[in-house]
Design a protein around this nucleic acid. Structure first.
Length: 843
RNA sequence: GCCGGGAUGGCGGAACUGGUAGACGCGCCGGACUCAAAAUCCGGUGGGGUGAAACCCGUGCGGGUUCGACUCCCGCUCCCGGUACCA
């Protein structure tokens, strides 16, 4: 029992690994040495290629997918958490007999590679490939069971050529179009900035005031699928309700009316969309965007207007900025005509109306819209009440807008109608006259996929003076992104590379130019999960294997992707289906959104200096300890507070488990004993073992609460520490208990459990063992303790037979001395019995 | 601003369907082992109260429903994620 048998594990002496292959019983080291066992177990997984899988129609498949990382350089603890969750689920499902696919790859295009290029003069491609090498090695260190033969790297032509191919198919199908869209323009660096590169309205590097600029860009018609994307959310029962709600709100279906207001002295009317036509009689002004033709026209020879409109342009393009900024406007001096009353209505130009969204004009009803109310109050515009509540006192719009539905007042012929009746009456009125119509509108906008960046997938379009935009034909794909470039941050190098953009028109053969814009990097991540099923196919984007593996049974990733990535991926799956390339319309059956990893209550970031590097920790404690800590510290969907002491505690538990097995095994393995022959104490431990099996299986398989699963195994190990029965039967009970602990912990701490499994006499890989099942016979209890409450407050405890009826339980409860003290001679009005738990006596 | 989420001992968290608040771990306190320390093992640990008990208070804040509320309802505060070019 002292450190006598340490001869194996002293480290990296030649030949240790072959001896470790027979590592068991008397060969077992008393001390837990992760630095020895982890490389050894990983070598065994590699040699047996046990995580490489193929389609097998005779077995139930399970596709377990974690969101692939952007290769930023080093593995972050957030990655380790995400991938441990996925690995635990994958290993558990495999032990449940499923044919499990768990792939990994690289979301390799993106801005950080360009930023690194500017800072350290290394080409984005070089930087990216180096990072991938480094991070792949780190992932292997943590023992994740990936099928590396399926690795995809999105910046490789083998991958993005199929994205380009798909785009040309969608182009021909009419799902792609070009229009102007707003970007953040840095006038000093002469580049387009991402929203996160704009800080307080200024470029992050130049410090120049950012301008909004409109440039032509490619769009995908995701709005064509808005209705289906919305409707099928209802079928995604394996998704968190919060994510479904966010997507529902993002798509934002509304039913409203599009109306035309004539404009004085103009032929073209002003068109607006409203979901509240019932408030039409309350319109007191109109607001248009700075780029609106009416505003532009009015600004001629009006320097004050021109100045205001130029101010509107110097503004960050994000929604958050738009909605929180001060709402400002100026009257144009032009009137619209109210379509019902003929009254003149002043038209204003306002900074919160954008030309790109809707019609670039809105009707304002300050009495019944809070934003309009604030604007009207600020500029002294009239506020008119046209809706009162259906019940109760009339609305008062002098202190704020009344935004509820109700009954119409001050609305002429429509007075007395409810909002709903008025909606229909007014919609019909316009429809009949042809100056308005009912319309379903979506908040969701088409997806702008052009980026004025270098490090991305080249857009496979050739612009020809004769033929216009022509998709690159299949035989000319891929359009390869040149990797050997000088990148200085002054716009994309592709725009300075005639050898890249000069080409012949595929249609007429005349001189033409390629697109130098690249795709939004969300494109690559919108279909990678499908490509994992057949990454080796160089003749087609997908093949029949996709329908064996898809849909993904379990998808795991950060909540921050709840809307954009997950919506785009759902959209792509529908596109693939409609092109006949895949069967399913939804890609992810079950979704687990992981919370963030915090330190000192804050998100880890370089600027705060509170980052934790997982690799040194794995070196110091072993990967299993890091995995265990991350699964134990919080349930996966909550944020996780990092704690060095917590890591230490996780390590201690593994040491205790190791030692418990060592001490047990050193005395030899026990003979099988029939459960019927056990004593009370032995039965009790055995019941705890089978309770633990049931608990852990439920926690991992259904609830995904790995923290409580681990807590349950800790409790069992604690109980085992107090169980010092060295009889043959006692030793058999302990053998069963320890084997159970090793099996149920193996998805979480796979390296240690593999070794312990062998020490306990197990054969082969733990990953190939069957998940244990609880023996119902072992779970039977004879007596239970129940709590007794008087008027909802605990006054005592009683122990009763497990099968006692309510009457017996009530009698025992009333007999309890402290309960009697509180009941006294009061009349018992009611007794509530919750079987096996509590009795509440109401007096 | 809008949408979604969160708040429980000194700390991370548990309490799953309205039924024993604080499982498990960390930290801390006490003890064993040791010349001593580390490691390890055993015990204690929400606050008040008591010799010990009884008992009282306690799940961000203010109300409500219920025999019973961390859990459900109404109204707030603060923190986090997303907000369409960060990934």
């Amino acid at each position: 029992m002292t450190g006598s048998s340490c001869r194996l594990a002293r480290g990296r002496a030649a030949g240790y690994s072959s001896r470790l292959r027979r590592y068991r019983l008397s060969f077992m080291d008393e001390i837990y040495r992760p630095e020895v066992i982890e490389p050894e177990v990983q070598a065994r997984w590699d040699e047996s290629r046990c995580f490489e899988v193929t389609e097998d129609r005779s077995r139930e498949k399970f596709y377990c997918l974690s969101m692939f990382p952007y290769p930023s350089g080093r593995l972050h603890v957030g990655h380790v958490r995400n991938y441990t969750i996925g690995d635990v689920i994958a290993r558990y499902q495999r032990m449940r007999g499923r044919n499990v696919l768990q792939p990994m790859g690289w979301d390799a295009f993106g801005m950080p590679a360009e930023n690194a290029a500017i800072q350290s003069k290394v080409a984005p491609a070089r930087w990216t490939y180096d990072n991938i090498e480094h991070m792949r090695r780190q992932l292997k260190l943590f023992g994740f069971g990936y099928d590396w033969s399926r690795e995809v790297t999105t910046c490789r032509p083998e991958y993005y050529r199929w994205e380009q191919w798909l785009f040309t198919r969608l182009f021909r199908k009419g799902l792609i179009y070009k229009k102007n869209a707003v970007v953040n323009w840095d006038p000093v660096d002469r580049t387009v900035l991402a929203n996160e590169q704009v800080i307080n309205g200024r470029g992050w590097r130049s410090g120049a005031e950012v301008e909004r600029r409109e440039i032509p860009q490619w769009f995908m018609k995701i709005t064509h699928y808005a209705e289906e994307l919305l409707a099928e959310l209802e079928t995604l029962e394996g998704w968190p309700e919060s994510v479904r709600t966010m997507q529902r709100n993002w798509i934002g279906r509304s039913e409203g009316v599009e109306l035309q207001f004539p404009v004085e002295d103009h032929d073209v009317p002003l068109t607006v969309y409203t979901t509240r036509p019932d408030t039409l009689m309350g319109v007191t002004y109109m607001a248009v965007a700075a780029e609106h033709p009416l505003a532009v026209e009015a600004a001629v020879e009006r320097p004050d207007l021109t100045e205001f409109m130029e101010d509107c342009v110097r503004m960050h393009a994000s929604e958050a900025t738009l909605e929180t900024m001060e709402k400002k406007g100026m009257p144009l001096g032009v009137n619209a005509v109210h379509p019902l009353t003929g009254e003149p209505i002043p038209i204003w130009v306002a900074n919160f109306v954008l030309m790109a969204y809707g019609t670039g004009a809105v009707m304002a009803v300050p009495g019944h819209d809070q934003r309009d109310w604030e604007f009207a109050t600020r500029y002294g515009l009239p506020i008119r009440k046209v809706i009162d509540p259906l019940e109760g006192s009339p609305a008062d719009v002098s202190e704020g807008a009344f935004v509820e539905y109700g009954r119409l007042v001050n609305s002429g012929n429509f007075d007395g109608l409810t909002s709903e009746q008025a909606f229909n009456a007014i919609a019909d009125h316009f429809q009949v006259r042809g100056n308005g119509r009912r319309r379903v509108n979506y908040r969701l906008r088409d997806w702008g996929v052009s980026r004025q960046r270098y490090w991305g997938t080249p857009i496979p379009i050739v612009n020809c003076g004769e033929c216009g935009a022509v998709p690159v034909p299949d035989e000319a794909l891929p359009v390869v992104l040149p990797e050997d470039v000088e990148f200085d941050g002054q716009g994309s190098p592709l725009k300075r590379m005639p050898e890249f953009y000069r080409c012949k028109c595929p249609q007429c053969g005349g001189r033409a130019e390629r697109e130098t814009d690249t795709f939004d990097t969300f494109m690559e991540s919108s279909w990678y999960f499908a490509r994992y099923t057949c990454p080796d196919n160089d003749g087609a984007i997908l093949d029949s294997r996709v329908n064996y593996w898809l849909p993904v049974d379990q998808y795991i990733g950060g909540v921050e992707h709840a809307i954009l990535h997950l919506l785009y991926a759902r959209f792509f799956q529908k596109l693939l289906r409609d092109l006949g390339l895949a069967r399913d319309g939804e890609p992810f059956t079950n979704l687990l959104t992981q919370g963030m990893v915090l330190k000192d209550g804050a998100k880890m970031s370089k600027s705060k200096g509170n980052t934790v590097d997982p690799e040194p920790l794995a070196k110091q404690y072993g990967a299993d300890t890091v995995r265990l800590f991350m699964m134990f510290a919080a349930p996966p969907d909550q944020s996780l507070e990092w704690s060095d002491d917590g890591v230490e505690g996780a390590h201690r538990f593994l040491k205790r488990l190791w030692r418990a097995v060592y001490v047990h095994v050193e005395a030899g393995l026990p003979e099988l004993v029939e459960p019927d022959d056990l004593t009370g104490a032995q039965r009790q431990i055995r019941r705890r073992v089978h309770e633990t099996i049931a608990k852990v299986g439920d926690d991992i398989g259904r609830r995904y609460t790995f923290n409580t699963a681990i807590a349950a195994t800790m409790e069992l190990l604690n109980d085992l520490g107090r169980f010092d029965d060295e009889s043959e039967a006692g030793r058999w009970v302990r053998q069963e208990a320890l084997s159970t602990l090793v099996l149920v912990l193996s998805p979480i701490v796979p390296h240690a459990c593999q070794m312990l499994w062998e020490c306990l006499g197990g054969e082969g890989l733990v990953i190939d063992q069957r998940w244990p099942e609880a023996d119902q016979g072992a779970l039977v209890r004879t007596a239970v303790e129940m709590v007794v409450q008087v008027k909802g407050r605990i006054r005592g405890r009683i122990t009763v037979a497990a099968d006692a009826d309510d009457g017996t339980v009530t009698e025992a409860a009333l007999a309890e001395p402290n309960v009697q003290r509180f009941v006294g001679d009061a009349e018992v009005r009611k007794v509530i019995v919750v079987p096996g738990k509590l009795v509440n006596i109401v007096v």
